[in-house]
């Protein structure tokens, strides 16, 4: 079952262009290593940043090994609480990537359903849903998220919030960005539903839901795939921004954003690595995702041939 599928993929145009595009290969390799490393963090990381027993406050603010005051035990130095920065970054990227992926899944679920219905049914419903999307887009994601998260913290207290932080971030980022998907999907559905194969399945007597999800949706998959890569990167950035503002992941369970934030206080006292190193990781992660998104867009848009 897997072997023929792989062979078909190997012969596909996507794989062919991938092999000829060095930027795509490098981006994919870096992303792959990142994802692999962060999800096997408990195996790779020398310390467990969540375990207070392994943290010694006496080890705080030790610079990376290559600097004079560096310590062999901590490759990338330690943060203000004495946690090993390398381990914390691994665990932190795991949280960032998880939030990014699940937030985008939620966005995609909402946006694709709404976009499909809107485009296929048309008329008043379409108008209503698209105006709703316009309203949603007129508030910036961060603004919605800040209001929502701040109100939640004020109402239920920070203790409950810290327990539910990952879930809350996924919900907020997921709900705030659905119009991106809805608009893209709707535009494609409008083009697809005029094609004769849609008439042909209506003539067969299939119901609207079946036609939308089984026949039209697969034909709009390539733009969905393209925006998904970019949206994951955006979601990671949003999460980092929220954490940086103190509304995201708590310091006890830091994501890349909260790590950057926690080091920010110490940047002028010389401990630059606590902020800069996770910052570089974040930028790199987002950059390779965007580059991969560009690559996918170029390959999947037949009107745009690059030489």
């Amino acid at each position: 079952m897997i072997a023929p599928a792989w062979r078909r993929f190997e012969r596909s145009y996507l794989f062919y262009s991938f092999r000829r595009d060095q930027v795509a290969i490098i981006s994919f390799t870096i992303l792959f290593i990142f994802v692999l490393a962060s999800f096997s963090a408990p195996l790779l990381a020398p310390y467990d940043p969540y375990d207070p027993m392994q943290i010694d406050i006496m080890d705080s603010e030790i610079p990376p090994v290559w600097m004079e005051a560096g310590d062999q035990r901590f490759m990338l130095g330690t943060d203000a609480q004495g946690r090993d920065l390398f381990s914390t970054i691994l665990y932190g990227s795991r949280i960032s990537i998880t939030i990014g992926i699940f937030a985008v899944l939620l966005q995609a679920f909402l946006g694709i359903s709404i976009g499909l219905v809107s485009g296929y049914v048309g008329g008043r419903l379409d108008n209503f849903l698209m105006r709703l999307a316009d309203i949603q887009l007129s508030f910036s994601t961060l603004m919605v998220a800040i209001i929502f998260l701040a109100v939640f913290q004020a109402l239920f207290g920070t203790e409950l919030y810290e327990k539910l932080a990952i879930l809350m971030l996924i919900l907020v980022i997921g709900i705030a960005e659905w119009p991106q998907y809805a608009r893209t999907v709707r535009a494609n559905v409008l083009a697809e539903k005029k094609k004769e194969y849609v008439d042909a399945v209506r003539v067969i007597g299939l119901g609207s839901l079946r036609i939308m999800f089984k026949h039209i949706l697969p034909n709009t998959l390539s733009p969905i795939l393209v925006i998904s890569t970019v949206q994951i990167a955006n979601a990671i950035v949003s999460e980092a921004a929220l954490s940086f503002l103190g509304l995201g992941m708590p310091v006890t369970k830091p994501s890349l954003g909260s790590l950057i934030n926690s080091g920010f206080e110490f940047i002028f006292s010389g401990s630059w690595w606590i902020t800069i190193i996770p910052g570089i990781v974040l930028v790199l992660l987002v950059l390779v995702m965007n580059l991969l998104g560009d690559f996918l867009r170029d390959v999947m848009n037949p009107k745009l041939y690059k030489d």
């Binding site: 026949h215 697969p218 034909n219």
Partner: peptide
């Protein structure tokens, strides 16, 4: 539809869904 009355269209390029 499709059960008691069927319909055949002009262009078989267009009436078959390309992804299924």
């Amino acid at each position: 539809r499709g059960n008691r009355i069927s319909m055949i269209f002009q262009d078989p390029m267009m009436t078959l869904n390309p992804v299924l």
